[in-house]
């Protein structure tokens, strides 16, 4: 049970239909990118769940820190002028 034989971890992203974004669906183990792609096909698209697959080494992902939640996401909260409902327009005005 040699340690060096453990396949590294990959994250799998799948486009479920043409026109949609790739979405994270899970992870798996594979020795290389090619194998990861094929494993993703065999593991995550057995029920026609996808038309396109991305695989990314898990170690290549940089994630935001939960401790940064406030400085990262809070400032957007009060910028309501970015949303259309912030603006008053006369009733009856169409197509806007």
């Amino acid at each position: 049970m040699a340690n060096h034989s453990e396949f590294p971890l990959w994250e799998v992203f799948i486009r479920s239909h043409g026109g949609l974004n790739h979405k994270h669906v899970g992870s798996l183990h594979a020795a290389d990118a090619q194998m990861a792609l094929e494993h993703a096909r065999d593991v995550y698209t057995r029920r026609m769940e996808g038309v396109s697959i991305w695989v990314v080494p898990s170690t290549a992902i940089t994630a935001s820190d939960p401790a940064d939640t406030d400085p990262f996401f809070e400032p957007a909260r009060d910028k309501i002028y970015r949303h259309p409902t912030f603006y008053d327009i006369p009733e009856g005005l169409k197509h806007m």
Binding site: F7, L28, H29, A30, E38, H39, D42, V43, R46
Partner: peptide, 11 residues
């Protein structure tokens, strides 16, 4: 030899 390979062979 590994779960993923097992699944591939079943496919």
């Amino acid at each position: 030899p590994e779960l993923e390979i097992d699944m591939a062979m079943t496919n």
